[in-house]
Nucleic acid binder design. Structure first.
Lengths: 224, 224
DNA sequence: TCGACGGGTTACAAAACGGTTATAACGTCA
DNA sequence: TGACGTTATAACCGTTTTGTAACCCGTCGA
């Protein structure tokens, strides 16, 4: 899940990036409007957070530009009490706003809500082929079998694989996304986690159909 | 407090439901006019939110039907700028309207205003299945047993679970909603609160039927 | 042929989790 | 103030989940 955050206040930008990456999102930073637009083109983020007051191009202009070509959720950051800004932002197609100052917790809650609304996370069960994932319940359902309970790590791994289903995801990226940190020495963990997940979701865990190994590269989820 | 929300836009419907249930309302969803009417009959909601553009039966038709048998408050969702729609909705007996797009905050404010106007704020007990909650009296009634007194925290917890009945609510969210703040060290509090609540409302507290735990995820209220 | 390497498998220890109970701190009201 | 109901803190237990380590077995290049 990739989020573009644009703000000319370095400190705030760092705080936002920190908060979101802690929560497992990939954050792309921009410190003015022009950079933001460029980053939007090149990175194709899943969500955009824009400060209204920015040099280069204001949040309004950036939002307007983005809306000419994309329906990606946009959240605007406003200074408290600037009601007209708010109205204008919503008219330009922003999906939500947040008044400064705000707590990291609030930011995170809103971001999640927005992603949920856009159907890109949680509640709307993630699905790929015969696999359906319910993030709230921590369960998967394969085909028409009864739902299985997954542990936190298994869930995160499967989430990543589903999000990139059909393409192989490198071991390093999986390590990063599932554990959040970790050096390269922890391949063992991934090996085992994959093993356990296969035991649960594969018909014949010894001959994996869905969770396939890409030797030397990583793993991929194959759906019909 | 039960709210019926009908919209064919799945994402928007999810957002509305999320916003309202966060605020403690029980939300019933419908994705077209026919479903909406059926749900209205079976659920007897305290407030209805209708999108005007829906397959099956338009918001107008649903509103008209509802008005033939009930005075329940109805809020219509319109697209910005469709003024005639608005007039027609009000003529058909709608009590309020909201132009899309709108912020969750606005929605909540309007809903509260409507309920207040209808004089049904607070008083009516929250209910789910065999559980009926009286927020004013701080009591629950399970089935036809005599009402039990709940403490403030027990009440808040149960309120949250009822508002999301059938879906699991994460421990973090519960912590947040019940205590308002709290870090991760306070899982202990939740553990105990759940325990005490089970002692009160479950027939066999050792084998919970209603207040079930979703390991690794949180808790959920299961009603038949 | 050997041996290093990558991946799979197995076994087991450490940590986290959820349920339970006991007890201390707190608040309220007589 | 003291008794009582409520909430917070802590400890204990059994279970599940996660981390650590070892071994197995093919492949591949020296």
């Amino acid at each position: 899940m990739k989020i573009l955050s644009a703000d000319d206040d370095k400190d705030l930008l760092a705080l936002i990036a920190f908060t979101l990456s802690q929560a497992g999102y990939l954050v792309v930073k921009a410190s003015d409007g022009v950079q933001a637009l460029r980053a939007f083109e090149s990175e194709g983020p899943d969500l955009v957070i824009l400060d209204i007051n920015m040099p280069g191009a204001s949040g309004f202009q950036v939002c307007e530009q983005i809306r000419t070509k994309s329906r990606v959720p946009v959240m605007m950051l406003t200074v408290r009490g600037e009601e007209e800004d708010l109205v204008r932002a919503l008219e330009l197609g922003a999906d939500d706003y947040l008044s400064k100052p705000f707590s990291p917790r609030t930011l995170l809650a809103r971001v999640k809500a927005l992603l949920r609304r856009a159907g890109m996370e949680n509640t709307a069960p993630l699905a790929a082929g015969r696999i359906r994932l319910d993030v709230d319940e921590h369960t998967v359902q394969v085909g028409s079998n009864p739902p299985l309970r997954l542990t936190k790590l298994e869930l995160r791994l499967l989430q990543m694989l589903i999000a990139n289903s059909g393409h192989t995801v490198s071991s390093d990226r999986l390590l990063m996304q599932v554990w959040g940190h970790k050096g390269s020495g922890d391949r063992q963990l991934l090996k085992q986690l994959v093993h356990r997940l296969r035991q649960k979701i594969e018909v014949d865990p010894a001959a994996p159909q869905m969770l396939q190994t890409a030797p030397g590269a990583g793993y991929k989820l194959v759906v019909d």
